[in-house]
Simulated assay, not measured.
Amino acid sequence: MDSYAAALEGSRSAVVGSHTLRLPDGMDACRSGDCLGGMVTADAMLEYARPYGAVMALCNGGGIRAALPAGDISRGHLLAMLPFGNTLVLRDYSGEQLRQALEHGAGQEGAKGPRLLQAAGLRYVIDGSRPAGQRIVKAEVIDAQGKAVLLDPNMRYGVILPDYMARGGDGYAMLGGGQPLPSPEPLDVDIVEAYIRNHSPLPMPITGRITRTGLH
């Protein structure tokens, strides 16, 4: 047991990268708007999945369980941030299914909570003063060159997301109806670790993915 514990601790303490960014982060931040952990996770997912046909990445804010600390980032920090060992899958959705997912994410009190969607390749505006189900006033798909186009309810989009959500978890029944697209199915923490290793020290992510208007 001592030998196993020592090996585990060695793995957890291995440094995978660093950052010096000052952005909101942690459980509360990721359930209310843009947060560093959510943006880095979604960016890592999308960079990995673009070659397989993904144009956006989604993950629920409640899946981010700790902040990404400034300074050196260890494997243990990533396991604390993403502790559930989610497999990432690629699915094809209509714009209407994605709009419903965004509404579901903003449907709780104050348009905040663990269902709120962290995203890459997508930005959206929430009006918290409107009734649940009518709070998404604008949603845009952002391509690899940064060009924004309104989400089209009739178009199909390749999305990488945790298998938990693709199975309809957290009330995301509309995401349970996606069509599978061929791709590997890696663990979220492995993809984020590879991304941080490749981009360390982490650059400032593109913010403004979740914008709030009306009542907050």
Score class of each variant (00 low, 15 high):
Ser3Gly: 03
Arg130Gln: 15
Leu21Gly: 07
Asn60Ala: 15
Ile126Thr: 05
Glu109Cys: 04
Glu96Ser: 11
Asn198Phe: 01
Ser74Ile: 02
Val89Tyr: 02
Asp152Leu: 11
Leu151Asn: 07
Met27Val: 12
Ile191Arg: 15
Gly76Gln: 04
Arg12Leu: 15
Ile136Cys: 01
Arg197Asp: 04
Ile206Ser: 12
Glu109Val: 06
Asp190Gly: 07
Glu9Ala: 12
Ala119Trp: 01
Gln100Ala: 10
Gly169Asn: 13
Asp72Phe: 00
Gly214Leu: 04
Asp188Phe: 00
Pro182Thr: 04
Tyr195Cys: 03
Ile142Gly: 06
Lys138Asp: 13
Gly178Phe: 08
Leu88Gly: 02
Tyr124Gly: 08
Gly10Phe: 01
Leu21Ala: 05
Ala70Tyr: 01
His19Trp: 07
Gly176Asp: 06
Arg75Asp: 09
Pro162Val: 03
Gly177Lys: 14
Gly110Cys: 09
Arg50Leu: 03
Ala57Glu: 10
Ala57Pro: 07
Lys147Tyr: 00
Met45Glu: 10
Asn198Lys: 15
Leu46Trp: 05
Met155Pro: 00
Ala7Pro: 00
Ile142Glu: 12
Gly95Glu: 01
Val149Ile: 02
Thr87Gln: 13
Arg22Val: 10
Leu181Met: 15
Gln118Arg: 09
Ala111Ser: 15
Thr41Val: 06
Tyr93Lys: 12
Pro69Leu: 07
Gly33His: 10
Ala67Arg: 04
Leu68Ala: 05
Leu68Gly: 01
Pro24Met: 05
Arg91Phe: 10
Ile126Ala: 02
Glu185Gln: 15
His104Ala: 12
Ala148Ser: 15
Leu202Gly: 07
Asp188Asn: 14
Ala5His: 04
Ala194Ser: 11
Arg209Ile: 00
Arg123Lys: 14
His199Tyr: 10
Met39Ala: 09
Ile126Ser: 05
Val89Ile: 06
Asp143Ile: 09
Val192Thr: 05
Gln179Trp: 02
Gly105Glu: 10
Leu90Arg: 11
Pro83Lys: 02
Leu151Val: 00
Ala139Asn: 08
Pro114Glu: 06
Gly158Trp: 06
Tyr93Ile: 05
Ala111Gly: 10
Asp34Ile: 04
Leu82Tyr: 13
Pro69Glu: 07
Gly33Thr: 06
Gly158Arg: 14
Leu116Met: 09
Met1His: 07
Gly105Thr: 01
Leu117Tyr: 05
Arg123Val: 01
Gly76Asp: 08
Gly26Ile: 01
Pro186Tyr: 09
Pro180Ala: 11
Ala44Phe: 05
Arg135Met: 02
Glu140Leu: 06
Asp34Phe: 02
Ser74Arg: 14
